[in-house]
Design a protein around this nucleic acid. Structure first.
Lengths: 225, 225
DNA sequence: GGTAATATACTTGTATACAAGTGAACAAGA
DNA sequence: TCTTGTTCACTTGTATACAAGTATATTACC
């Protein structure tokens, strides 16, 4: 069910609208084809249309919303092309990053990566899948931050909405245990300064979405176009 | 001098404002540190503040404008980090694209690339540097379109503003003749399905900005931060 | 003259009003 | 019954009004 949370302290109206919209689209509470009415959302969230429109325009660029002037704005279908392009973008950039890290990484940075992975393994036994997902996101972001590519991360992240929806729909298909062992193997390769291995392990890791995709397409064909 | 053109037929107010702002920032008519007054721009362009603000928000994401709430919006300095990240992003993606094209390119696509290069060589003798620049942009965009990565192009292109400013400031440093011969060598490598060569030629091609950068930093240190 | 309080003239953020286009419901007429 | 025309309730795009914060200049006071 579509559920809107309260506005955070100090949060701008635009940031609030963007957070709520993104959350509900990513979690598939707002399904492809659903109408996004600026007026209705304005009433629901208690902010004016202006910040709502600003948030919508961000999500248009992420290809999560489509705007038809004078007709309406709708949650976008999951696009085959968009998913494949996002996958290409991600594996291209992240494989280049781990290759670069083989040269530049410090012991302290390696340690922080291993600490994250240890936590992943901890929650593998006792925690929820959501905990793992958060640590997964954090792990990949760390690779960008460590290599001084925060802007690149932001740019790439803005295109990952399609991915996130796939992940929501296939929560139980790709086993968390595989994700975590992938991560450890990647960091091991970086530690050993084995560029070729680091690259290919990252690419293999980021190709696992294909299983999810195939399963989700079968289960929810109507969400795609 | 800052110069604003007329609004095109059928162009939305937002698109108009974005076009004019981008043009003047890229061409260094609006210099780093210059105040962007929403009210003044609103009067100048003859549109209201709303579309102006929407355009500004796009340029904030491109790191060409910085907004300080309740203080003002200013043209951003050319950031060392931003330039290096943009360079990394571009050579990483485009080298992956030419590698992929070695497998997938058709004869018709090869022909269209060579036609573009022939035009470049034609204007090398008789035309202006601006003609070459337009064909240069077109050439790189063609590589994305041919490989079915238009969204990726849009995303990457939005981060290339820093680059464009460097190119404006160093119009005469990197010789057009090198650019054009680079392009031909790259397409030759694609034609020969020589992935390693295509990759390294593209990387070398996209590393030429470093000469410009060093020169521009010396000539206009105040534009950087 | 030096200092502190106070206008005032900006800035962006948000709310609201108006313009213009779309499509569905519905009524009138053949 | 089918078609056509009209109304009406929506939509987004744009313009404008208001709120709130900031920095500067000015004024009053010591």
């Amino acid at each position: 069910m579509v559920r809107y949370q309260d506005r955070l302290a100090g949060e701008s109206a635009k940031a609030y609208a963007l957070r709520e919209l993104t959350e509900n689209i990513i979690k598939m509470e707002l399904k492809p084809g659903a109408l996004i009415s600026e007026n209705e959302l304005s009433r629901t969230l208690g902010v004016s249309r202006t910040p709502i429109r600003e948030a919508i325009q961000e999500l248009v660029k992420a290809r999560l919303i489509e705007v038809f002037p004078q007709k309406g704005s709708y949650v976008a279908s999951i696009s085959f092309d968009a998913v494949e392009e996002a996958a290409f973008l991600r594996r291209t950039i992240e494989s280049a990053i781990v290759e670069e890290l083989c040269d530049s990484i410090t012991d302290a940075q390696l340690k922080s990566l291993y600490e994250n992975i240890d936590l992943q393994e901890f929650y593998l036994k006792s925690g929820t899948s959501e905990k793992i997902m958060n640590l997964d996101n954090e792990f990949h972001e760390m690779l960008f931050v460590i290599s001084g590519k925060e802007q690149t991360y932001k740019l790439m992240h803005s295109a990952m909405g399609q991915f996130d929806r796939l992940r929501t729909l296939s929560l139980y298909s790709v086993k968390d245990i595989k994700i975590v062992s992938d991560h450890r193997a990647i960091v091991d390769a970086i530690r050993d300064k084995d560029k070729e291995n680091a690259r290919s392990l990252m690419i293999k890791h980021l190709m696992r979405y294909k299983l999810d995709k195939d399963e989700v397409i079968r289960a929810y064909p109507d969400y795609f176009k």
